[in-house]
Design a protein around this nucleic acid. Structure first.
Lengths: 264, 264
DNA sequence: CCGTGGCCTTGATCAGGATCAAACCAGCGT
DNA sequence: ACGCTGGTTTGATCCTGATCAAGGCCACGG
């Protein structure tokens, strides 16, 4: 587990699976006793240049830092649930989260996955419109939503950057609508792998090895498929030497053939 | 056809179907000779209170008006195509447009429909990410994209309103992901009818009669279904007296049963 | 009045992916 | 080593919605 800046506390807000690592939690708690998280240090932040914070000048970043608290979460922990009062907004500094909406009868749609640099909590409403859960250990920079909103209204570059992020998200969402509405199963999986690889590449540097911290079920719920269809599709590609199974992910062996599955 | 304010020109930028009404076009052209559209008059604008313009004070609205040109389009006309250089952004003042993305092999995904008050052209990119076509006669308030962007940077309330619009669109898009990814055919059609009714209700006032300016094919391409499935589903509801066929749309007879089709 | 073209509806059949079921596998605690 | 557990793979069968095909309806124009 990565230990950042000054003092970090592990907060396991809502550990559904019982996997919370109480020992690590208590060890680190000695460094920062507040259960509300610790002051963040932008100077050492690894995602500062990617995140919305990049809009802030050296002078202004101090004001942002004053609002920020750093939070670390264990894997498989709920950050918030759809319908919860939206007190906070977040910037992801490390790890991966799953964002999803649920229907009353148990069906899920995974709206997306959040990775370092992503901003979580864009919403008009007083409540969150989706749930967010960690897949891995996750580091977050947390802001009070109301404070953050008023700061964005007094620091225009931040508002501009926020608007940019929202517009970008919208384009992604429309892309995904095409996948869900008009692509066949094989195309959906191929599109997902290629895009996920690109996204990771933008922060880690491009690599044929693609980490997949989400389960097959998560991928299925993201792509509007069943776990069996996702599993069969990828198994076929492994037999065909298009991808290779590696622990915690896959390696793309034949980018050409994978991309060729997608018309347009 | 509605004739607004001072002088209006009908511009048929790219009439694919040959349905452009040349006679009306030339009649109205006498009032405003410029093919680039005419000056807009915000004072008489019917959507001013709903649209992004609502952010502007009485004083500032003059600056917005200076950038605006009013454009009227015939039914079944292309406003822009995906990939075109994004010169303009628009506010819809009347009528309905279809927004869609196309795959190389002819499959379409209708991203959404734009109605009065909607803002079209939110995009990071220099090119449009989707195509926009009129379904009915449409009135638009047109702005040069670059001018509009710089105005929004000097008039913060406009930027805030724009950001609000983008965030709202994002929520709508996420809703639609659930429909496309996890809803069955019948649920998709029910969700569409109920939401479309709500949207129209917000500008026209609530009514059991719901105008459907889009074709069955458009609905199918919006919902990730085929035209036959949409047709069959609605035909069944008509037999069951849940909805009634009226020219140009439907009437909701049994809101209860329609809503009951949707879990959650 | 009839022919034509668009769109919509309806019926028959098909298939892609879902569902059902069982086996597999790795990690983990005992 | 053992058996549990949760996720994954694989196989057999089913079903929803797609596809294929025909016919209906209506607005237009000759």
């Amino acid at each position: 587990m990565r230990i950042a800046g000054k003092g970090i506390i592990l907060v396991s807000l809502n550990d559904k699976s019982g996997l919370g690592d109480a020992s690590v939690n208590s060890v680190v708690a000695g460094l920062c006793a507040s259960p509300e998280g610790c002051r963040s240090v932008c100077a050492t932040c690894r995602v500062r240049l990617y995140a919305v914070c990049s809009a802030m000048s050296e002078d202004d970043i101090a004001d942002l830092e004053r609002l920020a608290a750093h939070v670390e979460l264990s894997p498989r922990t709920a950050l918030f649930q759809a319908g919860d009062l939206a007190r906070f907004v977040y910037t992801v500094t490390s790890g991966t989260l799953r964002l999803q909406r649920d229907l009353a009868d148990g069906r899920r749609q995974v709206i997306g996955f959040a990775i370092p640099g992503d901003f979580i909590g864009l919403s008009l409403d007083e409540t969150y419109q989706f749930s967010a859960d960690t897949l891995t250990a996750v580091g977050l920079c947390r802001f009070d939503r109301k404070d953050f909103t008023s700061l964005s209204h007094s620091r225009q570059p931040l508002l501009e950057r926020l608007h940019l992020a929202a517009t970008h998200e919208l384009t992604i969402a429309q892309d995904h609508m095409v996948i869900l509405g008009r692509r066949r199963a094989e195309e959906r999986v191929a599109a997902f792998l290629l895009r996920w690889r690109d996204r990771l590449g933008r922060i880690n540097g491009r690599s044929a090895t693609v980490g997949l911290p989400m389960s097959r079920q998560d991928m299925a719920d993201h792509l509007g498929l069943t776990i069996e269809t996702v599993s069969r599709t990828m198994a076929r590609w492994m037999r065909d030497r298009i991808i290779l199974d590696v622990p915690g992910g896959i390696r793309v062996l034949d980018q050409q053939r994978l991309a060729a599955i997608l018309p347009d």
